[in-house]
Design a protein around this nucleic acid. Structure first.
Lengths: 267, 267
DNA sequence: CAGTGGTCTAGACCACTGG
DNA sequence: CAGTGGTCTAGACCACTGC
């Protein structure tokens, strides 16, 4: 069976563009077939040909569609599954990952209680303190790849565990992508906020970067978290990205760490 | 070619032990061949048949040794490489991972400068403040899977970047495994501490868990880090594990986060 | 029972490294 | 050039799911 895709198609593009610019082909940039298949599947995910939670076609179907062997499709899916974009379920199929699944919830919330398992406290109480439309300052704009002055939605909320306010978060979203988001929607939605983003705005968060510092409680944060002024808090700044590495959320969190801690595993 | 290993060997063990206990075989616990191969390779790593930095036998050789196909060995090695226990180098071979490699250094040190790349500050200055033999209290013993009162080596040191003291660390090691470790050795060794552990004590750190909190500088920590009393510091408690999930190091670090931050990537 | 993902094999060929 | 890991294929069979 001859593949319909050239093994060197991407390389050809790179080489030709380098040639057009007069560059002397720095790297052949060989791209294996399965990487190209991976790219095609990724493209379908971006274009939401299959939505979060849905099954994608079987390996056999995809192999036929792309005119490659099942093993090649398999390797592409393997990588996407390793990146948590797809979830394989033996006997059932391969599914688009979603933040609505229980086991995924704690991949993005690393604050866990000192005693007991991560989810042992039941559902966190979420209180929305503020919701407003603001123009991005230079910092916010840079983080979200916007221009200074572009419209954003800002949300301030407090998460409480067992009645104790533990997390204060300020969230900024590009207004264009989240047009129509309301406080009511945010307040009434059961489940992770990122699941709401998936179903209502077709925005799927794929990865995030967090910068963590220790800072004293000030600016009224101490009142909202019910701690003394200048109490050390964990400051967590997160930028969350969608499929094509587009930043779609900036989040500044302040965590109390007297009964919880930020858990990280290195390997 | 018939495999010399039974596909169900591990399953058989589990089933028989469950049977001996009168259990009614809860899970067949099917173990694929490549997992068994992975286990055998892991065993050789533990027994240091191949030492950190050395090449392991080629895929073909291992396939012949274990009487399986190259593809099966390949899948086993794939997983070990994904876990950072092995490193593949095309055209050269597969090597036992080591902390002596440049690119590995920053997998375990997540504190990076606010400006500039992770390694841009040059080598950190390390000053050993204290080195003593102490008996483990209940906390230390639990963390290192020792008994209270067992001997440990305690090291206190300060890491400085560009002349600024930034990290204060207390390290506890089980004395039995690190017999003969001296201050001179620690002070004179160039490169990561974990690389020293590999070459001198045959202890290879494979993964670690970190619990992070925000705490005020007290107990003289403020003097060693040259900050004011009660300045918020990042408290990082790490337990590091060797191949077979044996804890071999407890480390309590206090990080200044005025010019650096703890960087974490979620996916 | 059919359909899915998961394992295993055998062989061909490619890309990369170093002598 | 030989030796290594990397890719791709084709086919057989296994484990799991749900009808």
């Amino acid at each position: 069976m001859r593949p319909a895709l050239s093994i060197h198609s991407e390389a050809a593009v790179l080489a030709s563009s380098a040639g057009a610019l007069g560059g002397n082909s720095p790297t052949p940039a060989f791209s294996p077939l399965y990487q190209q298949i991976k790219g095609l599947i990724l493209q379908s995910l971006r274009e939401t040909e299959w939505r979060p939670g849905e099954a994608i076609p079987s390996e056999m179907e995809l192999a036929a569609r792309f005119k490659v062997s099942q093993g090649t499709v398999r390797k592409a899916i393997d990588e996407l599954a390793a990146e948590n974009l797809l979830v394989r379920r033996q006997g059932k199929g391969t599914f688009v990952a979603t933040h609505a699944e229980q086991n995924v919830q704690f991949r993005f919330l690393k604050l866990v209680p000192d005693r007991g398992a991560p989810g042992s406290e039941g559902r966190a109480q979420r209180d929305i303190i503020e919701f407003k439309r603001v123009r991005a300052n230079a910092d916010i704009a840079r983080a979200l790849a916007l221009r200074t002055g572009d419209a954003t939605l800002q949300i301030r909320r407090v998460l409480s565990f067992g009645g104790t306010p533990t997390i204060l978060e300020d969230i900024w979203l590009p207004a264009v992508a989240f047009k129509g988001l309301t406080v009511e929607q945010l307040a009434s939605f059961q489940g992770p906020t990122y699941a709401l983003f998936e179903t209502q705005f077709n925005v799927r968060m794929v990865r995030a970067e967090e910068k963590i510092r220790a800072e004293p409680a000030t600016n009224g944060h101490e009142k909202l978290l019910k701690v003394e002024l200048m109490t050390p808090l964990l400051s967590v700044e997160r930028i969350a990205y969608t499929y094509k590495d587009v930043p779609m959320e900036l989040r500044r969190g302040y965590y109390r760490t007297d009964t919880h801690h930020y858990q990280n595993n290195l390997s």
